[in-house]
Design a protein around this nucleic acid. Structure first.
Lengths: 123, 123
DNA sequence: CGGGATCCAAGCGGATACTG
DNA sequence: CAGTATCCGCTTGGATCCCG
């Protein structure tokens, strides 16, 4: 199954239904864990659209971030397969960052989240 | 605009483009903040499909959670307009939890996230 | 230029005990 | 039954300094 819109069973006597809920929850949890981190979304949005940026470009684009955080978040996203890192063996060093195809594929999902947030009723 | 799939400007000289990226990032960030918390997604998935559960039902459904955390996360989601809380003035007390319409509307967005996670290439 | 190493403060979440 | 109150450890993230 790929949908979370499962029919509600009036009496959830089915273990399969419970398993479905748990696995869906943990699946989304794993996805969100990849996006956790104070700066990942900001970085992500700067790289969307196929943009390729150097480390210093990102520093300039996100003035509030520290070098440590920028490096750390980029490393994690690289390890997670969201970001591709290209090192040019030259001096002074030059490193470029871009999204992988899978990273780009996050766009529709974040769009859906954005749409949901926009639909928030007034309180 | 509602889409994050904006065309990449070869030279991002447009301030509008930058503003778009920033606001989209912060929009999604705000959405994700509502879902942050160790147990919110688990609770959410137990309430999806229009299920109505009592406090003790949720405790039984999520054995690993503590009372403090269950109450806290439910309060936050109630305050955020995701969960509706109904108190029956009787003794012993009875409190039921269900998703608001807006809470239910999270389903497609989480589906998209789930689909994205499932599309992760093998490493 | 593009980091790594270290130290430190704040906040999140867990365990336990108590209550209307 | 459905919480609240308190304490406490661990993780996250910021500041600073150093390096190839």
């Amino acid at each position: 199954m790929t949908s979370t819109h499962e029919k509600v069973s009036p009496l959830p006597q089915s273990k399969a239904a419970a398993y479905t809920r748990e696995s869906a929850a943990s699946g989304v949890e794993q996805a969100l864990k990849l996006l956790e981190g104070r700066w990942k979304l900001v970085i992500l949005f700067h790289l969307f659209g196929g943009r390729v940026l150097r480390f210093s470009d990102l520093e300039r684009a996100i003035p509030a971030i520290s070098q440590k955080m920028l490096a750390q978040q980029l490393r994690q996203m690289e390890g997670d397969g969201i970001v591709r890192r290209v090192v040019y063996p030259q001096v002074p060093p030059k490193v470029e960052y871009a999204l992988t195809e899978w990273g780009q594929a996050l766009c529709p999902a974040l769009d859906a989240l954005l749409a949901w947030a926009a639909a928030r009723p007034a309180e």
